[in-house]
Design a binder for these strands. Structure first.
Lengths: 146, 146
DNA sequence: CTCATCTCAGGCTGACTGAGATCT
DNA sequence: CAGATCTCAGTCGGCCTGAGATGA
């Protein structure tokens, strides 16, 4: 049999949903590999970048904004706190809340993660020219908004 | 707090890998919803469409071509056989192999699944014009090949 | 004997639910 | 009291490995 390799049928290869799934899988692998070199994962980057861009927030607020489950957020926050990348303090105005803040070490680590993420984008988009990359981002942005 | 909604930071919104992940997630949800109405899942469609497009094959061959694990393939084949959508027979030329063939009922079901899949693509791509859809498919195809 | 195939049992991870403790 | 928050235990699906039975 001459079917040793990954080689799905044309029907699948032409489906936008299939192409998106494959491209997203490749992109996720690139990004995850970059994070792994810093002993981090996607959620850790997402939370850190949000804290630095938008300032301190409660875990529940972060979860809602980022689509991270409350339960997973508890674990991610525990990881980041253990590594000294965030500080968690009871909100004095609402003592149910853990207010999460990026530390200086958190910002330093985020800078490294940012570089890893950008490198992963470059690897992913390598087959496309600069205008094509812009076009892709624009089309995807409209898909995601719709 | 005015953060009730899903609203990730700009850094994420502009990342190609993030856009791809979101778009693929939406696409996957549309497609899965369509399959669910036929009490099927992605792998069942993938296997059926491959059998109809490329003809009978062993489970191992299907698995290699489609990137489906041998173990999951065994379960999917059992499902499809139970529903009468495929026939499984020992290959007389190599009795290790289960040769899998789409039945008439399998082709009928595939036609319904095809319609569901196409409807899902239409929903997904609704924000884009026809030329934009072609452009997106072309860019994604090159990304996936690279 | 070595290797491929099919199958089942089970592990791992990401996404999620339920429930309890704490607090508004 | 109802409702929000944080946390842990546990479920469920997709994806994978290991190993046994069968056969080339």
């Amino acid at each position: 049999m001459d079917d040793e390799t990954y080689d799905p049928p044309q029907r699948l290869r032409r489906l936008p949903s299939w192409l998106l799934s494959r491209a997203a899988g490749a992109a996720g692998a690139h990004v995850a590999a970059g994070f792994a070199q810093e002993r981090m994962r996607k959620h850790h980057f997402t939370v850190l970048t949000t804290l630095v861009e938008q300032g301190p927030a409660s875990q529940a607020s972060l979860g809602r904004r980022l689509g991270i489950d409350r339960s997973d957020m508890a674990a991610v926050a525990a990881d980041l706190e253990r590594d000294g990348l965030i500080a968690r303090e009871r909100d004095p105005a609402d003592r149910r809340r853990n207010v999460v803040t990026a530390t200086t070490a958190g910002r330093t680590t985020l800078a490294r993660l940012d570089a890893r993420v950008d490198a992963a984008q470059e690897q992913l988009l390598e087959p496309l020219t600069a205008p094509e990359r812009e076009q892709l981002v624009e089309l995807l942005t409209r898909l995601v908004r719709g």
